[in-house]
């Protein structure tokens, strides 16, 4: 399919079959939309211009960059496990209102993972990773730093086991920052390939939802820890990761607040919750779209001034990104990625943790429920029928299985609200890609 869209005074054509992005003028966009069956007035385009544009369209089509037929080849998925999310601690020292993990407890008892269970999880990953050399483990919670000693010992154990097998681990950890200081910060900086630091932006926004157990805001308790950590981080990976809700649909201000505080790697996610006064509904979408545009403009302005920052969802690589086989494979949860909860039970991913219907086994048994695994293994872009007519399908690969299930009752039934935001961010990201190229070409002249 072909998607024609406009960003302010720019016009773009995205060909989904070839994953090619083109820039054109208003008349070309009009003609193409007419060609696609839209009811548009093309009287402003002269006959001579029309012939010229048609020649351009024909050349692009001949080059396989326009109206290219989309692949319908179902992906061949391997049984190799790539990554585990270790719920090292089902407890938390904060009580964030929107936490999908039920304030750390995942709808069960507050519990810490033992070192023995963590070691069994590492063994499970190594034993099920086939010929794969690089393995990934994310320390998650709850707040994983409440069980820091097990994090540390697990890292040492995994490195030792991997070295003996000719493999290598990449570790990541997500923290709210409360305990991120001194030896802990030093260890994470040395051992973690990526560290995700939770901060929602402006103090009043952060404090309204991210509260301590006694109900006080946590901004002042974490901001210096996070700043100090990023200072020692140097050029190693980190993300300052925020959540926005219905209450701060002006989240661009929060992203820019984070950037203004010296953080240059930022992700800001729409909340996943069914709490009515926080959940995003279709009523908020126009304001959210406007906000993504405002963020896009400021992002480019700062980039042009040499003061740019990295925003996770504006990063779409059409040239060197994933191959087509990967783009149609869906997210990998339940087949190549699993989460392990403190007692060793295995779930398709962190967002399914604690749901008995999705318990796939235990690291102590070492085998997986093949019926559930088959369900996830067979799920791909083509089993998500709603995606057929969507231009962003090869970017998002059918969305989040957990969101689909929690909102629509089926991992193959994409959730419309997140789809709408995904499409918007994709258009912004494509505009950014074009503008960055334009800027670098201008610099070369």
């Amino acid at each position: 399919m072909v998607h024609v869209f406009q960003y302010k005074e720019r016009y773009y054509i995205f060909d989904t079959g070839s994953s090619s992005l083109h820039e054109c003028d208003e008349k070309a966009a009009l003609l193409l939309r007419k060609k696609l069956g839209e009811d548009v007035d093309i009287s402003s385009v002269s006959e001579a211009e029309r012939r010229e544009y048609e020649e351009d369209f024909a050349q692009l089509e001949k080059d396989g960059l326009l109206f290219k037929e989309e692949t319908k080849v179902y992906p061949a998925k391997s049984d190799e496990v790539k990554a585990l999310c270790l719920h090292i601690c089902h407890d938390c020292n904060l009580r964030c209102k929107y936490c999908f993990a039920d304030e750390g407890a995942y709808h069960s008892a507050r519990e810490f993972m033992s070192l023995e269970t963590a070691k069994r999880a590492i063994d499970f990953l190594i034993e099920n990773s086939g010929n794969r050399k690089i393995l990934e483990t994310d320390f998650f919670g709850g707040e994983p730093l409440m069980n820091f000693d097990v994090v540390k010992q697990t890292v040492y154990y995994a490195k030792e086991r991997a070295a003996a097998k000719g493999k290598k681990f990449l570790f990541t950890l997500t923290t709210n920052g409360l305990l991120l200081k001194d030896d802990i910060a030093q260890f994470l900086n040395e051992e973690m390939e990526n560290v995700v630091l939770s901060l929602d932006g402006r103090k009043e926004v952060h404090d309204a939802v991210r509260k301590t157990a006694n109900g006080k805001g946590s901004f002042d308790l974490v901001i210096d820890n996070i700043k100090n950590f990023v200072k020692i981080r140097g050029d190693k990976h980190y993300y300052v990761r925020g959540t926005f809700t219905k209450k701060n649909t002006d989240f661009a201000k929060d992203v820019l607040f984070i950037a203004d505080n010296g953080f240059d790697s930022i992700s800001m996610e729409p909340v996943v919750t069914d709490i009515e006064d926080l959940a995003i509904t279709k009523e908020e979408l126009p304001a959210i779209f406007k906000e993504y545009d405002a963020l896009c403009d400021e992002y480019l302005k700062r980039y042009a001034e040499g003061k740019g920052f990295h925003f996770f969802h504006f990063n779409v690589d059409l040239e060197g990104g994933p191959c087509l086989a990967k783009r149609v494979s869906a997210c990998g949860a339940g087949n190549e990625y699993f989460s392990v909860v403190p007692n060793g039970d295995i779930y398709p991913c962190h967002q399914f943790a604690g749901d008995p219907a999705f318990k796939m086994g235990s690291v102590y048994e070492g085998k997986l429920d093949e019926k559930i695994r088959k369900q996830f293994k067979e799920s791909c872009l083509f089993t998500r029928k709603k995606c057929d007519g969507c231009f962003a399908k090869f970017i998002c690969s059918g969305g989040c299985s957990a969101n689909n299930y929690h909102f629509n009752g089926d991992i193959n039934d994409p959730y419309e609200i997140t789809c709408a935001m995904m499409r918007k961010r994709t258009e912004n990201a494509m505009h950014i890609l074009a503008e960055k190229k334009r800027l670098s070409q201008n610099e070369e002249r």
């Binding site: 773009y12 054509i13 070839s18 994953s19 090619s20 992005l21 083109h22 820039e23 054109c24 003028d25 008349k27 070309a28 010229e52 544009y53 020649e55 351009d56 369209f57 050349q59 692009l60 960059l65 992906p75 061949a76 391997s78 190799e80 794969r132 690089i134 059409l318 040239e319 060197g320 990104g321 994933p322 191959c323 087509l324 086989a325 990967k326 494509m430 890609l433 074009a434 190229k437």
Partner: peptide
């Protein structure tokens, strides 16, 4: 081909 400019894939191994 001067009105339409191509802005941006390069020419399943599972290494990702």
């Amino acid at each position: 081909m001067n009105k339409i400019k191509t802005v941006a894939p390069a020419d399943g191994c599972g290494e990702c």
